[in-house]
Simulated scan of single mutants.
Amino acid sequence: MGILDRRGALEGRRAVLIGGAAGIGRAVALALGEAGVDIALCDIDDEGIADTSAQLRALGRRVLGMHVDATRPDQLAQFYEATAGFFDAIDLLVNVVGGTRMQPFMERTQRDCADDIQRNFGYVIESMRHAVPLLQRSGRGGSIVNFTTIEAHRGAGGFAVYAGAKAATTNFSKAMAWELGPLGIRVNLIAPDTTPSAGNAAAIPEPWRSLNADVPHEWWAKAFQMYVPLQAPPSADDLANAVLFLASDLAKSITGQVLHVDGGAAAALGMLRWPYDDGSTLPVPMGGTLRKLFG
């Protein structure tokens, strides 16, 4: 066992993972499993639940996998009841579920807005309400990791309600870090930006989705070189690594913080590396790009 394993001390711990069947959630589940964590996970993707659970069992982990719509309070309560019967206590909660689709606010219905709020904030409240007593049972505190987004930290046109809901999750989590601190329960957040996943692809509406379908991969790579300071978006495994850190004793004095796992996009705040020999990193392109675009 290396120094990171010894200091991280995740071996033998128990986690609840809300949204662990595919994409980022699956990467988190497998990373935790490889670190020696037993997992209760839920999702609406039955095939994904079965596949992720099988991979975790192959690692020697104890696994509870259930079909649950986390946005339904009754189903979430049933999942936590089953989890309490499966584990006597838990050490970690990761709330991954979230998402939306890009659409101007005035085109969204009241139902659309309510769904965005529940999917990106409301269920987090209920999940933490159920999880805290199970975390307390461990007698050694615990760690909660909630997923927010870069959109919670900027004006995100086309994602207004989603951005507002994620901002609510962010501030709620910070407030809960203060409230739960005396119990030894830490609460932190991970804020991704664009990450290659089916969920992010689904958020793009028509006709953009069709227009993007035949764009060569190398064009996307060049676009990210313009936008992301580290030249590429983070992978699902990069986000899983951040969860491992915040969940582990390596972060035992960190709570109430937002960890931006975005290749530096949040730090850049709109600065772009424009092409066509501009050499400019300003938000507005210079002459070379302007001539290519409009000349």
Rank of each mutant, 00 (worst) to 15 (best):
F86Q: 07
V94Q: 08
L92P: 00
A131L: 00
V124K: 02
D74Y: 03
G65I: 14
G85W: 11
G99T: 02
Q103F: 01
F87G: 12
R111Y: 01
V97D: 07
T71S: 15
R108C: 05
V124T: 13
T100K: 13
R62F: 09
R108E: 08
I117M: 07
R119H: 04
F79Y: 07
R119T: 11
G65A: 15
V97H: 08
L93C: 02
F87E: 08
F87V: 08
E126M: 06
S127Y: 00
T71Y: 09
A77Y: 02
I125S: 07
Q78W: 09
L92W: 03
G122E: 09
P133C: 02
R129G: 02
A131P: 06
D116N: 05
M66G: 02
D88Q: 15
Q118H: 01
V68Q: 09
M66E: 15
Q78G: 12
M102V: 12
G99V: 06
A77L: 06
M128V: 14
D88W: 11
F79K: 03
D112M: 00
A114Q: 12
Q110G: 09
S127K: 00
A70L: 13
R101K: 11
A77G: 06
E107S: 12
T109M: 00
V94H: 01
D69C: 11
A70I: 12
D91V: 10
T71L: 09
D91A: 07
G98A: 15
R72V: 08
D74N: 11
M102H: 04
Q118W: 00
V96H: 02
G99E: 07
G85M: 07
R111V: 06
R101V: 13
D116M: 05
H130V: 01
M128T: 08
M66H: 11
C113A: 08
G98D: 15
V94M: 10
D69Y: 12
N120L: 03
F105M: 11
A82F: 01
H130P: 05
D74I: 08
A70H: 11
L93F: 04
Q75N: 04
F105S: 10
A131I: 05
V63E: 11
C113H: 03
T83V: 13
I125P: 04
V63H: 07
V97N: 09
P104C: 00
